[in-house]
Simulated scan of single mutants.
Amino acid sequence: MTTPQDLFLVSLDVPGEPPVEQGDLSLALAGAELADLLGARALTLDGERIVPGPALATGDRMLDAAQAALKRQEPYETAEDWLWRRGEGLAAAYRDALDAEGQLSGKRQGLFRRAGRDAAADTPARRHAADRWWSREPVLAALAATLGIEADRPAQAPADEAVLTVVATVGDAVTELGAVRERRRIENAAFDNIWRAP
């Protein structure tokens, strides 16, 4: 299992307050992909820019797709730009991939069947994610914290400087997206008030 898969499952199975927004989760999943690709040495960071390494088979379809999506020409993409570009709709893509493998409901789904999509089930993927979560694995815990999912005891910070940069970038992006949502909420409320005014 990969860090993005584990993070997705933790977002379902560990209560957070408030519940995790899909846009925030998508950004964090894109960051988790970067963390795993850093660990596999499929890329490095030069400051905040993603420098792709040689193409490697990771053994995971979603990570391979992430690696294939890396921009391989200079000037390389920044981690922030990657989060916004790769993150679009990524939570739904992970949900569908895990659901199709039977890791959400415990039953493999056919192309046209969708039953109990997010129903908790005791699956190998969920057990793996829970083990990583309760052991306070630093990368998973740090990315979950950007979503407001906090462990009952603190985890160590990731040791890798590049991973710390990714986590900080995810945190900034989630904060920015939250500010955009709040601004839209205020604008919509003001618009509604104008229409309601006598």
Score class of each variant (00 low, 15 high):
R95H: 08
A115M: 05
A55N: 06
Q109L: 04
A100H: 09
Y76N: 00
L56K: 11
V51A: 01
I50C: 02
R86K: 00
Q67K: 04
R108T: 13
G89A: 10
Q73M: 14
R49Y: 04
K107S: 03
L98W: 04
R108E: 02
D99I: 02
Q73L: 14
R117V: 08
L63Q: 00
L83R: 00
L98T: 04
A91E: 08
R72Y: 08
P54H: 13
Y94L: 13
A55I: 14
E80L: 15
L70K: 01
A69S: 06
E48Q: 15
G89T: 05
I50M: 00
A93D: 03
Q73E: 15
P54F: 13
P52G: 02
Q103E: 07
A65D: 15
Q109D: 02
A69T: 05
E88K: 05
L63C: 04
R95F: 04
A57K: 10
S105Q: 12
R85E: 08
A100C: 02
L56C: 05
T58Y: 06
R86F: 06
D118F: 04
R49I: 01
K107C: 07
D96Q: 04
E48S: 14
E77G: 01
E74R: 09
G110C: 01
A55M: 13
R108N: 04
D118P: 05
Q73S: 15
E88F: 14
T78S: 13
A97H: 15
T58I: 11
G87C: 13
G47L: 05
R86L: 00
R113N: 02
A115I: 07
T78M: 13
T58D: 06
K107A: 08
R95A: 07
R61S: 11
P52V: 12
L56N: 00
Y94W: 09
R108K: 10
W82F: 12
A119Q: 15
R61Y: 00
G106I: 07
D46A: 13
D99N: 08
A66G: 10
R117M: 08
V51C: 08
A92F: 13
